[in-house]
Each structure stands twice: as structure tokens, then as C-alpha cells.
């Protein structure tokens, strides 16, 4: 049984649709990254999963239970990181641990202490006095010490510098691998996800553009460098097969779902003479922009 099972999820705010028939599932031990632009419906999906929003239609099951009717026992198996590393700011490091501990019988003090000790902070220090990076580590420590089976992380990279982002991802990755935890994660920094996720759900304007493994996602599109015979300005709109076009003199950089030989034929059909088409390495972010566009 899938840990998360979302079927035909649709939701609208004041009749403006934000999610349209989205389907996806997350199997045990898998890490699913939800990517999408601002307003694509990522946070809405997370809110529905947490039970903070009743969807207009569709079924959303977490551990086999409806997300808005999760029992306390099921919630005990879920760790949630709210957007902006939301914590009770008026508590000290020790107090926030004591508070969270009282709800989770499987609480792991060692994990919490290990993660917070490396920040070299005092137990008496209030969370409100911590930097954004330090707060993210405390939030992660709280999350991991809960020994949750499912982690839901909403935009974990928000406000973090590259160092703290890397630290967050590495800590999470090693923990998840060791404990075989299921993770659902969203982030605006797509390069972090590339290192972390197994599966990708690409949301665009409320619709699921892609839902599959990271490898198949990366294979679904390729980045090409096209050398034109003579310098000429190519209208990107005529290149129907290219998702992102960038031209520097007689060099065209495009992202396309077509294979190399198909691409040659496509250029020939448009009567654009090319000397060479070369596949070049591509990041997840390139693929994301290629599929969704820059704006």
C-alpha cells in the first residue's frame, strides 16, 4: 500500500482553480519532490495532505486514511516541516524538545541532541534569537527525533544560505536512507532536490505535467547545442519542438523532448540548415525550466 495516495485532486480558491485532477502516489521509502513555479499548487497540495484544507474533489489518503480525518496515531507517524521552518519562537531549545517529546513516544533524544549540539547553541537559547539557518537545523532535528515514517517538508530551502541548505539536505538524506523513511518535499531550489529525490511530480498551473522517477524525468527531455550553417535570427516560436530557446550568434541552445535524429528531421522540415546538433549535459533545473518556461 502506498504511503500517500492522491487521486483526482482538484481545488479552487474563489472559483479560481489551483489544482486540476492531480494524481500521484508515494511508496514506502521513496522520496518524492514536488516542483513547480509560484502558484503551481505545491503548497495547496501540502495543505491538503496535512488536513488543513478540504479539497473540492478527489481523494487524498495518507497511510490509508483521509487526510482531513487523520487519527492521532497516524499523525504520530508523520513529521511536518511548515514553510519557513515554523517553530514556537517563544520556547528555548530545551523547551521545544520537551514539548514535542510529550506527543511522540518514540522520540529520540540522541538524534535531537546530536543535531543541535553541532550548532554550538545553549539549551536556554530562545528560538526567536536564532538565525534562519540555525532555526532550520532545529526544525530538522525536531522532525527527525520524532522517528516519523513519513516526512512532509514544505519549501525547506526558504531563506537558507548554500551552506545551511547543503547541511539540511545531507542530514536529511543520510537519515532517510538509514531509516528507510518516506519523504514528500517541495523546494524552490531545484538543484537541491536533484541530489535528494527518487521521484518527481511536476506541477504547472495546477496540472501534473510529469509524474515519475527522477531518471525518467531527466530522460524525458534533453538539452541540445545546435550549430547553424550561417548566422541568422531564428524565431523561437517556429521551433515547436523546443521548450526553451537561447541563441548566441550561430549557436542555438534548446531543450526538447525529441531524440537527436528526430530533431535533425524537424530542423530540415522547417528549412533551417544546421551543421551540427550535440546533446549537452543538463541539470534538473534546466529540465524544469525547459518544461515549464521561465515565466
Amino acid at each position: 500500500m502506498a504511503v500517500i495516495d492522491v487521486h483526482n485532486l482538484s481545488h479552487a480558491y474563489n472559483k479560481k482553480p489551483v489544482l486540476k485532477n492531480v494524481c500521484f502516489s508515494v511508496e514506502k521509502g521513496r522520496i518524492l519532490g514536488i516542483i513547480g513555479k509560484n502558484g503551481a499548487g505545491k503548497s495547496t497540495t501540502i495543505n491538503v495532505l496535512n488536513g488543513f484544507l478540504f479539497p473540492n474533489s478527489g481523494s487524498v489518503k495518507v497511510f490509508g486514511e483521509n487526510s482531513n480525518e487523520l487519527t492521532a496515531d497516524t499523525r504520530r507517524r508523520i513529521g511536518v516541516l511548515f514553510e519557513g521552518h515554523l517553530l514556537h519562537n517563544y520556547m528555548t531549545l530545551k523547551e521545544v524538545a520537551n514539548y514535542t517529546k510529550s506527543f511522540f513516544p518514540q522520540w529520540d533524544d540522541e538524534t535531537y541532541n546530536k543535531l543541535t549540539l553541532r550548532l554550538k547553541l545553549l539549551d536556554k537559547q530562545k528560538i526567536s534569537t536564532l538565525s534562519c539557518g540555525q532555526r532550520s537545523q532545529v526544525a530538522l532535528a525536531l522532525l527527525l527525533a520524532q522517528r516519523a515514517e513519513l516526512l512532509i517538508l514544505d519549501d525547506f530551502s526558504m531563506g537558507l544560505d548554500p551552506g545551511y541548505r547543503r547541511l539540511f539536505v545531507e542530514t536529511l538524506k543520510s537519515y532517510v536512507q538509514y531509516h528507510n523513511t518516506t519523504v514528500l518535499i517541495t523546494s524552490h531550489i531545484i538543484q537541491d532536490l536533484e541530489y535528494l529525490v527518487d521521484d518527481i511530480l511536476l506541477l504547472n498551473k495546477g496540472e501534473a505535467l510529469f509524474n515519475g522517477t527522477l531518471t525518467s524525468f531527466m530522460q524525458s527531455i534533453a538539452r541540445y547545442k545546435v550549430l547553424l550553417v550561417e548566422p541568422q535570427v531564428v524565431n523561437p516560436e517556429v521551433l515547436w519542438f523546443a521548450n526553451d530557446v537561447f541563441q548566441v550568434e550561430n549557436e542555438l541552445f534548446i531543450l526538447s523532448r525529441l531524440a537527436l535524429n528526430e530533431l535533425l528531421g524537424a530542423f530540415a522540415a522547417l528549412n533551417i540548415q544546421v551543421t551540427q546538433i550535440k546533446s549537452i549535459p543538463m541539470s534538473l533545473e534546466d529540465a524544469f525550466i525547459g518544461l515549464t518556461g521561465k515565466f
Partner: peptide, 18 residues
């Protein structure tokens, strides 16, 4: 008031209990 700032009430409500 602290529960309202940044919608922290969600944090309180999502604790494993009704």
C-alpha cells in the same frame, strides 16, 4: 497572539491528537 503570528496555530493543531 503568538499562535496567530505566522499561523503558528497550525503547528499546535498538527500535533498527534484530535
Amino acid at each position: 497572539l503568538p499562535e496567530t503570528i505566522g499561523r503558528r496555530f497550525r503547528l499546535s493543531l498538527f500535533m498527534p491528537e484530535n
